[in-house]
Design a protein around this nucleic acid. Structure first.
Lengths: 159, 159
DNA sequence: GGCACGTTACTCGGATAACAACTGTCCGAGTCAAACCGG
DNA sequence: CCGGTTTGACTCGGACAGTTGTTATCCGAGTAACGTGCC
């Protein structure tokens, strides 16, 4: 899986802790974890296309969460970055085997494909059950000082 | 995920249907689905290293299942081809963030990593529950002629 | 006829290129804020 | 002093290279069967 997923999730978390009315630039989000700013910007664009964050240009511009953290699941973020295709993509090799028919969709009928799809669905179900709000709450329970620290760190560039 | 996984699973199935005492060459297994033989051979080598199939050189050589089909899960095959690492590999970016400690293993403590690992485990659990014997039996229930057809097709090269 | 040996053809196994995807970077279009000027 | 306009800098957005991993291929080491010659 792409490394950008990790960046995107942590950035969404930080955006959830940011000042509600303010937008945060990609540069500051990148400076938080010392990431390459231009590349993180690329991932944030993907999140914007998926409707997870909204972007604003110009001075005082940047990114902010487009909807409630409780409505943003890890699956949403993974799908936005990686694309919706499943890990195992059936190439329908049975079509070239003996008895292969052209009018059969082996992605549905091949038992191997079915088993793989079942595993993929289990993975997606688990990711869909975890929202940014869940993680945010759990972190605040363990480290109560996190929200203020993040807000402070995002408010001004690295000294 | 690598495309070779699909080839490996189908080849294991075909090996399960093959004549018990006989070894099947990579060339014939590849001809079954019109796959590039040399590359399929590479995947079969990975299966051999993992102890899923055993290989024999020379005339009358080839591959055969090394253990009972009921002891070969889809997870075993995926692990053999792809390697055991999970899809989401935590890069521990929190280490470079504010309050990052060098002596903390963020792969265990980061909640994002934990959630991803949980999803990965659900995926693996589902794959581990499906064995080659399961799929073999299901196919035989739907297409009773499959075993004989496969055995016949594997016995001699493509005419 | 049976057995040992050399030959031969066949198979896996790893080393070697071609391709694609991910990673990283750069500069331009658009935009908002602030400064400036005139009334 | 206040409003409109211009300027300017700042930000996202997409287009452009570098690097790693996957896909595909080839040839050599090893081996078992076969044919041959000998006992």
């Amino acid at each position: 899986m792409s490394e950008g997923v990790e960046w995107a999730v942590h950035s969404c978390l930080n955006l959830a802790w940011a000042e509600p009315g303010e937008a945060v630039t990609a540069t500051r989000l990148a400076a938080f974890y010392e990431l390459p700013a231009a590349y993180l910007n690329r991932q944030l664009q993907a999140l914007a296309r998926a409707g997870i964050v909204s972007s604003t240009s110009g001075p005082r511009g940047g990114f902010r969460l487009a909807r409630d953290p409780a409505d943003i699941s890890l699956l949403d973020i993974v799908t936005a970055i990686e694309g919706g295709q499943e890990a195992f993509r059936c190439q329908e090799i049975m079509r070239h085997g003996p008895g292969g028919r052209d009018n059969v969709d082996y992605r549905k009928h091949c038992l191997v494909s079915q088993a793989m799809r079942r595993a993929d669905l289990a993975w997606r179900r688990e990711l869909a059950a975890q929202t940014i709000a869940d993680i945010k709450l759990a972190v605040e329970g363990t480290r109560p000082g996190t929200p203020k620290m993040v807000r402070n760190r995002l408010a001004k560039p690295v000294s």
